[in-house]
């Protein structure tokens, strides 16, 4: 930790990109294993022990494939779109604290920055779908946008609640506030927080286009949605972007509610690499839940999705915001008065 600033940034950037790429590859492997076992199968097993080299084989296959640019597409949009999905996701990792001191840029508005980048993501889907010159892709792009717009609202309301609770937007600061064992996590800060967590988690699922909200790529309706026309690494980059977004979503949930890199019990260390271990353990648990959910539920429709957002998530998240605000402001008054 004695590197000078430019080297530090470079090290982090290389680290983050490696982390994203490796995770995207191995989360696919994990997903296939989870799906396999849920369905009474084994999943990948032929390439390497337990199929562990499968992502490598897949990667080589995707990279060696021709990048087809179909007739009639807008070449610029078509090529830029996958990057527009992946780059913001990678950028968001800049402010994520993996450990007490392990954060690329510990900036005060980290949370705001992540949401700013997250909203660029949907542009990638829109441009990819629009640029593909494919009716299925256009429908999918329209769906993805309306879905993202609908779900930013309850998600942001929940996040505002958390900001009120912690009075900071610095992610590391938030984690530090949750030190001292599992009961100090914001998940248990007040009786409303589990619901807030649930809302945040559902919104994260919807934001990242994961089942049961995978309307954008609904394979039984729209073939593959916005990436119908993509081949080779064009598809691969979309895929990496999707998994990077899942990691971001789960990381945020962990940081906001589940104590980030803090260990669950005080007698367990969270210094140095232990902090990274606790953080990743929680993140991977949530990612497992995301996969578990995907392989359990059928897909919703756009109507169902909007109904859920406007009729259930937004009113309840507003209620939580109000009640939390009241608790923060009114409770000290009462207790202070008595």
């Amino acid at each position: 930790m004695t590197l000078t600033e430019p080297w530090r940034v470079l090290a982090f950037l290389v680290g983050i990109i490696a982390f994203v790429a490796l995770n995207a590859a191995y989360l696919v492997w994990l997903e296939r294993k989870v799906a396999g076992h849920i369905q009474g199968r084994i999943g990948p097993k032929e390439v390497g022990p337990f199929g562990l080299l499968q992502p490598l084989a897949d990667g080589i296959k995707l990279m060696s494939k021709q990048l087809l640019v179909p007739k009639g597409v807008d070449p610029l949009l078509f090529k830029v779109a996958p990057l527009l999905v992946l780059v913001p996701a990678v950028m968001s990792f800049v402010t994520i604290p993996f450990g007490e001191n392990l954060v690329a840029r510990n900036i005060d508005i980290g949370l705001l920055m992540i949401f700013a980048f997250a909203s660029v993501n949907v542009m990638g889907l829109l441009l990819g779908g629009w640029g593909s010159n494919n009716k299925y892709a256009v429908i999918s792009a329209a769906r993805a946008v309306s879905q993202n717009v609908a779900y930013e609202i309850p998600m942001l309301i929940t996040v505002v609640t958390m900001i009120m609770l912690t009075s900071t937007m610095n992610l590391n600061e938030m984690v530090i506030q949750q030190g001292g064992g599992i009961l100090n996590w914001h998940f248990f800060a007040n009786p409303l927080m589990p619901f807030a967590f649930l809302i945040f988690f559902v919104c994260a699922l919807a934001e990242t286009n994961r089942a049961p909200f995978d309307l954008g790529e609904a394979e039984s309706e729209l073939i593959a949605g916005f990436h119908t026309e993509y081949s080779g690494m064009g598809f691969g980059v979309f895929f990496m972007g999707e998994y990077a977004n899942i990691i971001i979503g789960c990381s945020l949930a962990v940081i906001l509610f589940l104590g980030g890199w803090q260990s669950p019990f005080e007698f367990l260390s969270d210094q140095g690499l232990w902090g990274v271990f606790w953080f990743l353990a929680k993140v991977y648990f949530l990612i497992f839940c995301v996969m578990w959910i995907r392989w359990t539920y059928p897909r919703t429709t756009l109507w169902g999705l909007l109904n859920l957002s406007w009729k259930i998530l937004i009113p309840i998240s507003l209620l939580i915001l109000l009640l939390t605000g009241a608790m923060i402001k009114v409770w000290p008054l009462i207790t202070g008065a008595s």
Binding site: A35, R41, D214, S220, T296, Y297, P298
Partner: peptide
């Protein structure tokens, strides 16, 4: 049918 609706797993149970 459930696969049409986006649920993958019941298909495999039914196949079993």
């Amino acid at each position: 049918f459930v696969l049409d609706l986006g649920g993958f797993t019941p298909l495999l149970y039914a196949f079993d």
